[in-house]
Write a protein that binds this DNA or RNA. Structure first.
Ligand code: MN
Ligand code: MN
Ligand code: ZN
Ligand code: ZN
Lengths: 133, 133
DNA sequence: TAGATTATTAGAATCATTCTAAACTAGAAA
DNA sequence: TTTCTAGTTTAGAATGATTCTAATAATCTA
């Protein structure tokens, strides 16, 4: 039984062709930022038959199981991250690509006061990149 | 000539009923975070006839002219901000509301290294809020 | 191997936003 | 004033990302 199947079994997800292919991809790439569009393109290239609905179903399920982290950048696109640590991102609009910023690469010497009756949830930091000059 | 008309004239935008109503709203509220949906609801309430397309046209134009700042939060919705300073936001998902975090309320003691060949563009910081306990 | 459960899929639906192309209006010029 | 034109508004269609539907297929367990 390969690693992908192990992982799926642990999460009580049936190891279908499609799921194994997705998890294989995650394992192979190790550190990636995944988009439904990027993933389906990759899988079609590998001649794996899969529908967009299945891509979304499974990415969302993997996020529910804690195997991926789901978030949004700027606007219309959903991203899934294999890096489960708390961390932030550079965004390169030219390549439509994210680059991790580990938590230890940023530190705050002053943090804003949280509004009354509320507590801090997730923090999103995106540093948009532009080309030099 | 009222303030709204002045502002529009300065930006070479004809002071139509619709535009004046939008700019009046901005002036009256002074510090607001605007969404197309929130704005059209407000204007319809005031019995001002306006279409969604016009709302978007004008918010985008005002952003182009530097009268509003345009950005996105988490996912699918476009926000326009009357606060033109560099600043960050709390997001309250319960109320679908943003709260400003002025730049001087946060400071970084350590900043991440910008990838080669790139420079820093805009920085987006969103601190999502949850209810206490 | 049967039966039940879980997955996959094509295509429709949804929602925010933009586009299109026709009808209207503000303001400059006559 | 009236006339003319560029700039505006509008309804509704189009778009793109994501989710839903409900029919079909695959997997698992007994
Ligand atoms: Mn969209
Ligand atoms: Mn969307
Ligand atoms: Zn990441
Ligand atoms: Zn703001």
């Amino acid at each position: 039984m390969n690693d992908a199947k192990e992982i799926l079994k642990k999460s009580k997800l049936r190891p279908t062709i499609q799921r194994v292919a997705i998890v294989d991809y995650i394992i192979e790439k190790h550190k990636v930022h995944i988009t439904a569009a990027k993933l389906i393109k990759y899988l079609k290239n590998k001649k794996i038959n899969i529908s967009l609905a299945t891509i979304y179903n499974n990415l969302n399920e993997l996020a529910d199981k804690g195997i991926l982290k789901k978030f949004y950048v700027n606007n219309d696109k959903m991203w899934f991250d294999t890096n489960l640590q708390d961390h932030y991102h550079f965004y390169d609009p030219e390549k439509d690509e994210l680059i991790d910023i580990n938590k230890n690469e940023i530190s705050f010497s002053k943090s804003p006061k949280i509004p009354n009756g509320k507590v801090k949830g997730s923090i999103n930091i995106i540093i948009n990149l532009k080309n030099k000059n």
